[in-house]
């Protein structure tokens, strides 16, 4: 079970790194699926396959150190930035490795515009991350979302930099 998740996530990651950065969309999971022909096989994969993809360690290596729990978004956008897709994938792996862990994705917007509409924008961001996690094999039951819109800023100024800091999704592990 665990190795299945790992494989899945790693395959997705490999795809991402293979040049998907130019494409704004989340990679289609289908091709990774077909690698493992038999339908029931996925969930009950034995350790062998997992070992053969041990190269995944390489991705865990980067000097990033601790896994970031906040990613930021462009103005009026809910697209996960190319450079943050690695962070999302590492969270996907973490959640896949720990099926009992739960994450709350907290979406936020900058202060411009209407408050309730900004709740919608924050939710869109949280959902974009949720979809990405689920595509990489994380169970829907492990994820909840909440949008605080512009109500919980981390930067209290009104400059572009402040706004950029506030447009974010935070990963909050609750279990």
């Amino acid at each position: 079970m665990m190795s299945y998740f790992k494989l899945f996530a790693l395959a997705a990651l490999a795809l991402l790194l293979a040049g998907c950065s130019s494409s704004p969309n989340v990679p289609d999971p289908e091709p990774t699926d077909t690698t493992y022909g038999d339908e029931m096989g996925g969930a009950s994969t034995d350790g062998m396959d997992g070992e053969s993809y041990g190269g995944g360690e390489y991705l865990d290596d980067p000097s990033a150190g601790e896994l970031a729990t906040v990613i930021h978004f462009d103005f009026d956008s809910s697209e996960v930035r190319a450079e943050d897709q690695d962070i999302v994938s590492r969270h996907a792996m973490q959640l896949g490795d720990n099926p009992n862990s739960r994450v709350r994705l907290e979406g936020h917007a900058d202060e411009r515009g209407s408050r309730e509409y900004n709740i919608g924008l924050g939710e869109r961001r949280a959902q974009a991350v949720r979809q990405m996690l689920m595509i990489q094999g994380v169970s829907a039951a492990q994820i909840s979302t909440v949008s605080f819109g512009e109500e919980r800023p981390v930067a209290f100024g009104s400059s572009e930099e402040d706004y950029a800091q506030n447009r974010r999704v935070e990963f909050k592990y609750t279990n």
Partner: peptide
């Protein structure tokens, strides 16, 4: 689950119009 927001009373006070998001947002 998800968003529960933007309440506003009906003129007769018996209902609220609300925004719901559900798990899929």
């Amino acid at each position: 689950p998800g968003i529960n927001g933007a309440p506003s009373f009906s003129p007769d006070g018996r209902k609220l119009v609300v925004t719901l998001g559900g798990v899929d947002g």
